[in-house]
């Protein structure tokens, strides 16, 4: 267990930063979802003229929904991790003080009575540390699947550009949706990569 308090401090900041990075993703994903719904409505009205257009807008809508759910799960996971980190820090903090007492007051009549307390807190620290690692993996997986989701969003954006070249009337509208999806995916990927960067600080702590 690392005792570097600066590193621990950065762990809390890192977790809060992940939540903050992804906060802006929410608005973007909602914007895409709205554009997709709009496009779906237009294509429904266009009927046969917009064949090939509809499955794409459906897919775009689905992807933006996935992004919204993903952001919520990531925020939740980051918060849970942060709470466990606080809990772990508190035990760690107490343990360090017990240790200090133990080394400083070796000759105190009742110093042996502190050992049981120390063993108990040690056990607790170990359990918490396991829980922390488990949650950390969960967060990594959530970020990975968000990244994956954005990669497929970008492929959909390129596919829809090919489709738009054959449909003329709705070309402009679908192009707008495709562009906004492409932009959004780029933006979200950037945020996810920013989150990975913060996560490296956290991993440095748990490996220490």
């Amino acid at each position: 267990m690392s005792t570097d308090s600066k590193l621990k401090e950065s762990r809390f900041v890192a977790l809060a930063s992940i939540a903050a990075e992804l906060h802006s993703v929410m608005a973007v994903a909602k914007g895409v979802s709205l554009a997709a719904k709009n496009a779906k409505y237009i294509s429904a009205q266009a009927g046969e003229n917009a064949l090939g257009f509809q499955p794409i807008t459906d897919f775009i809508d689905e992807i933006s929904q996935q992004a919204i759910t993903g952001v919520n799960s990531i925020n939740e996971a980051a918060l849970k991790l942060s709470k466990i980190a606080v809990y772990e820090q508190r035990s760690c903090n107490a343990y360090q003080r017990f240790n200090l007492v133990y080394t400083k007051h070796k000759n105190a009549n009742h110093i042996k009575s502190l050992s049981d307390t120390m063993i108990r807190v040690e056990d607790k620290m170990e359990t918490t540390s396991k829980k922390y690692k488990h949650r950390l993996n969960e967060l990594v997986e959530l970020l990975e699947s968000m990244d994956e989701c954005m990669r497929s969003a970008q492929s959909i954006a390129s596919v829809s550009r090919i489709v738009t070249s054959s449909s003329n009337e709705y070309q402009a509208k679908l192009e707008i949706v495709a562009n906004s999806l492409d932009e959004a995916a780029k933006f979200i990927k950037e945020k996810v990569s920013g989150s990975y960067h913060h996560l490296n600080h956290i991993k440095a702590y748990s490996n220490g």
Binding site: R97, L100, H105, N109, H110, I111, S113, D116
Partner: peptide
Amino acid sequence: VFAPMLGAILHHANVEH
């Protein structure tokens, strides 16, 4: 003062006391 207190106490009583 927690650590110095705990240290001082252990000269007079067990933790579980």
